[in-house]
């Protein structure tokens, strides 16, 4: 399975080779999409992980034991879908193709598996319906 997660590293944990462990110990194919280290050395990492479900579950357990918060992108990108008027303004800036309008019904849909957490939609939505927490 393929899924995108945001990992949040507490201060002092950003020096550990966590990604290496995920690859070597849990057999996960990793694509690093976005990374950030804050002023107090806390870190955020957006990863696409491709793995067997059992490996992915074990990896999440490992991250938990190491005090690293691992959440799926859907949980960190909040979109108040029921208030959307389907204008399409967000699709103008979503170069990752996560926000698209249906070819026939012109309804907006959000595909979290494509989101790169660039946060451009937050400012593009005229109704302010997006909230994204990459760095906590």
């Amino acid at each position: 399975m393929k899924k995108r997660f945001i990992l949040t590293f507490p201060a002092g944990r950003t020096n550990n080779p966590i990604t290496y462990d995920l690859i070597k110990k849990y057999n996960i194919k990793i694509n690093i999409i976005k990374a950030n280290i804050g002023a107090e050395e806390e870190g955020s990492l957006l990863l696409e992980m491709i793995a067997e479900e059992s490996d992915l579950n074990n990896a999440q357990e490992y991250l938990k034991e190491n005090n690293i918060n691992c959440q799926s992108v859907e949980k960190r990108v909040q979109f108040i879908e029921n208030e959307c008027m389907h204008c399409g303004a967000c699709t103008a800036v979503c170069f990752a193709g996560a926000l698209t309008l249906g070819k026939d019904d012109w309804k907006l849909s959000f595909d979290a598996t494509k989101c790169i957490v660039c946060e451009l939609c937050v400012k593009a939505c005229p109704l302010g319906l997006f909230e994204i927490h990459f760095s906590e």
Binding site: M85, H86, T91
Partner: peptide
């Protein structure tokens, strides 16, 4: 170049 509407055709 990607195009996007601002008015809602859905509505």
């Amino acid at each position: 170049i990607r195009t996007a509407p601002l008015s809602s055709l859905y509505k």
